[in-house]
Design a protein around this nucleic acid. Structure first.
Lengths: 196, 196
DNA sequence: GCGTTACCGTAACGTACGCTACGGTATGAG
DNA sequence: CTCATACCGTAGCGTACGTTACGGTAACGC
């Protein structure tokens, strides 16, 4: 035998580098050379860790999904009531701070890549539906008196609102800053009380 | 003198080709050769009409803006009441049908390109703010009793919802079909009545 | 009808990409 | 200590990109 490597750690570091490059230079700037430079290695090492560029992309996409999922879990667990849990999950999914706005830019990059790549498109759709399901359960817990159709409609609406806030915060963080995002979400959640 | 060309027509045709390629092959597939092939000419002609690729992109971006603006004008003019005008403008800005979903994919492509291109980012932000202004005026006309802050907040929220519906319809038109979009917008507009 | 000239297609340039083949190197086993 | 081998850096392959230079071609003034 000879020297052994920590494959999982390499994958994590390379995915993080992918993410970083994607946030900084956008989708056109995402090259294997740029990722390697950011990770402090060479393209040879990158392609020994991942079979090809798409495998790297897919892994980075899954990393992003796990990251957002864990943050959502934490926000959900820290809340006192179902309604507050819903509010917390939605708010952290939007992009209030610069750190999350970076994530949002990465998200947009993957979204654009998914338009031309069926594999990434499947992942994106899958993750989105999982988020809708999570929100639906939170809505159901917060407002159990709602019927199933109303619950589903409310959930897709809330997810769409969060998605839009993310997207808009990417290009116009001045108009769509933390304050604007909070009041948008608060208004949507307030409507949950008065609507029926 | 020698043969004269219709510069404006060429620009229009090339922009349409740009748009078409962008919708079909996504941002990575948007090459000068692909645009030229779609437009039925050569790259030489493309670069005689536009100085470089970015000029072509900028012109196509402006074309898209004019297109959506005109459609919004038409929807607004055809409505009977201010509230219906607001509803019509928002609904057509979302992506109910396949034709508009193609536009939404182009939109996402430009959005991703804007993350790496300051010129396109400026355009995108500018156009977005113009749309927010349009919606704000419609909200003000539909609900004149609202204060300026509430009007502004409502407008940014509605725009974010539309933007989110567009984005999500790109990758998951099954979940975010015409029906889901309509009920999401109707719910948001119904909240306009009951909220204050 | 003829020359001039604006126009556009052709071809190729340099560059950067994804990817691969190979050789050097460090590290664990004996 | 030594050898074998898993690992990764180096170099370069083929390809496709944006861009440019130039020559052929078609149309307008006279």
């Amino acid at each position: 035998m000879a020297r052994r490597r920590d494959l999982a750690d390499q994958q994590r570091r390379l995915s993080a580098a992918t993410w970083s490059v994607l946030a900084e230079r956008g989708l056109p700037g995402l090259t294997l050379r740029a990722v390697a430079e950011r990770a402090g290695c060479t393209t040879g090492m990158v392609l020994h860790t991942f079979a090809d560029k798409q495998a790297l992309l897919v892994h980075a996409r899954e990393l992003l999904h796990r990251r957002t999922g864990q943050r959502a879990d934490a926000a959900q667990a820290a809340a006192d009531s179902p309604l507050e849990a819903l509010r917390a999950v939605l708010f952290q999914a939007a992009s209030p701070t610069e750190e999350e706005r970076e994530e949002a830019r990465v998200w947009v990059g993957f979204l654009a890549a998914a338009l031309a790549d069926p594999v990434l498109a499947d992942l994106h759709r899958d993750y989105n539906r999982r988020f809708v399901t999570r929100v639906r359960e939170l809505v159901s817990a917060a407002r159990p008196e709602l019927g199933p159709v109303e619950t589903a409609d409310t959930s897709t609406s809330l997810v769409a609102l969060v998605e839009g806030l993310n997207t808009l915060a990417c290009v116009d963080p001045e108009t769509y800053g933390e304050q604007a995002q909070r009041s948008a979400l608060d208004a949507a959640l307030a409507a949950l009380d008065t609507e029926p």
